[in-house]
């Protein structure tokens, strides 16, 4: 029983990281109507930044995380400006292929700059583990922080979108770019802001991920990126609570499969569950479409 509880908590924690990454996918999809497959690699860049800041520059962890966030925010805005903005009116397939291209570009640049060797990432988290049930359940500091950070991000982001003008503008742009423009909303600015938020979150997710699973290579972001994309689709792409629920569920399913079925098959199980969900509810768990009366 206590091991089940451990798996569950660790699953929720992994899921929290997926959820933070999935937010980037889902927000960009909701607003720019594109799948930014380079999102996973922004995570990798963020992790390298934190790694270098702590290792080579000897900065304290908090500053290193901030630096990673700033670099990724700028990177996200730059990618959007250079690679995606010129394709605003292009067919979605062209944008998708460009995103894959950006993904490879980031991976290969990282190979060139940081080398192919796997680096050992020192955890930024110094919290002691919480031990429950006579030592049966050991919740590491990384696990605790990932869950708390995810909850904070969800609350802040939901409040931002519901209560601020910029948040409302994002919702307006996601529904109807032309009508939003007629309200005076700067659509390009709003898309930039979305990429900035998504990339900042990717940096945070990267640091959390590498703190919990401390290996770092130019391909570190790619699998979590795909999993988070699955989480976003799972929860209903475009929906922020959907990304949260999708991420958490995915983390739990993955960890439980590893624990009770087979660690080799865990990814296959995750994707099977996705296929089943999409067969039953093609829009994902929280995805819905309100039909407008005309």
């Amino acid at each position: 029983m206590s091991s089940f509880f451990s798996y569950l908590i660790n699953g929720i924690s992994l899921g929290s990281i997926y959820a933070i990454i999935a937010l980037g996918y889902t927000m960009v999809y909701g607003i720019a109507k594109m799948l930014n497959f380079a999102h996973g690699d922004v995570i990798m860049v963020g992790s390298y930044m934190a790694f270098l800041a702590m290792g080579s520059l000897g900065l304290p962890p908090v500053v290193a995380v901030l630096l990673a966030v700033v670099v990724c925010t700028i990177l996200g805005i730059t990618i959007e400006k250079i690679a995606y903005k010129p394709l605003r009116k292009a067919p979605s397939l062209a944008v998708l292929i460009t995103a894959i291209g950006v993904s490879y570009f980031l991976q290969n640049t990282a190979l060139l700059v940081f080398g192919a060797n796997t680096k050992m990432f020192t955890s930024v988290i110094k919290l002691p583990p919480v031990i429950l049930g006579d030592g049966g359940v050991n919740i590491s500091g990384e696990t605790q922080v990932a869950i708390v950070v995810c909850i904070i991000i969800m609350i802040v982001l939901t409040t931002f979108i519901k209560k601020t003008k910029a948040g409302q503008a994002m919702l307006a742009v996601s529904e109807d770019k032309g009508a939003a423009e007629l309200m005076g909303v700067n659509v390009n600015g709003t898309i930039s802001l979305t990429f900035a938020i998504g990339s900042a979150l990717a940096a945070i997710a990267g640091v959390l991920l590498c703190s919990a699973y401390p290996t770092l290579s130019p391909y570190t972001g790619s699998m979590p990126g795909i999993k988070a994309f699955v989480a976003a689709v799972f929860g209903g792409i475009g929906s922020i609570p959907g990304a949260f629920i999708g991420g958490i569920l995915l983390g739990i399913i993955e960890n439980m499969s590893k624990a009770y079925i087979s660690s080799q098959l865990s990814d296959a199980i995750v994707f099977t569950v996705l296929i089943i969900v999409l067969l039953v509810k093609p829009t994902g768990i929280l995805g819905k479409k309100i039909n407008e009366k005309v």
């Binding site: 003008k165 409302q168 503008a169 919702l171 529904e175 109807d176 009508a179 309200m183 005309v294």
Partner: peptide, 26 residues
């Protein structure tokens, strides 16, 4: 200058009040 577009194009998933507030965005 304000423009009421063809087919109304209200923000269907936002509330009436949120739509009105977006009208005053500037």
């Amino acid at each position: 200058m304000a423009h009421v577009p063809e087919g109304r194009r209200v923000f269907a998933q936002l509330s009436v009040l949120e739509n009105l507030k977006l009208g005053a965005y500037t």
